[in-house]
Amino acid sequence: MLLLSTISRRKKIKRVIVICLSVIFLIYILSPIYWVIISGFQKEAALEDRPPHFIPKKEIVTSNHYHFLFTGDIPPDSTLMLQSMYTMSGTLVYPAIINSLIIALFVTFINFMLGFPAGHVFARYRFWADKKIFLLMLATRLLPSISIVIPMYILLNKAGLLDTKFALICIYTAITLPFTIWILKAYFKNIPPAFEEAARIDGCGYFKMMAKVVLPLAMPGIIAALIFAFMTSYGEFVFATILTQTIASKTQTAVLAALAQGMSTSRGMIAAAATLSFLPPLVLAVIFRKHVLAGVCINLKI
């Protein structure tokens, strides 16, 4: 009896510790996001108050920052000082997000078209130098992007592709493909090849088999890999900031970093812009949370 009670007391203490630690980590994880979202809805003058308004009151809430980001209309109620803080580069945020989305979607699509069959081939067939090619591909993942950005710049300029979405799409595809193939290879390894063999015996051609049999089976893995490709290309920074110059190809990372560097820029506007920028991948991750988690775990079975 005594033993049992000490055990249950121990369990209780453990539980309290677990919850306390969890809460601390939750605060660490969530508070930056809370703060940036809240800041985007506060009046500029309120953001300069000391201490800041941790929970904003009604009278300091405004949607002016968002209004400005989309329309370029400087809030009419703001003072002269605030007006000078709304730099026109703020209006680039929205088109830049669209650019980023276009680029990321294309990359995701190419990843699907190329990575899906390639992952399948690596998982199912033995062929000349297969392991070497696979390793070489994985090794390219290790390349720090900063080490190839200079040659890339010079090469793209020679090809007249500097400051185009096309160039970024190609580069991001090259960056994400190895990883997509890696994940999908691991995923196919876990699917017994029996289904495919049966389809083959039934007289299915290769492409029909891939579309009708393999694709549905591999869907969760594919989604996981594609989401990763999407996020990587959406959030890439080094290439984006150096290889783009105008809004024709500037992505949201480049615009946001420049905006945050800008002097005396409205802080509320930066916060609103940051919120807008991370919204697409965030929504995606929340919708496909199961796949994201599964995708990370596929890595384990190399």
Binding site: I98, L101, I102, L105, F106, T108, F109, K165
Partner: peptide
């Protein structure tokens, strides 16, 4: 999505 993106592009 892709078709949409492609047309915008």
């Amino acid at each position: 999505f892709f078709i949409l993106a492609a047309s915008v592009f």
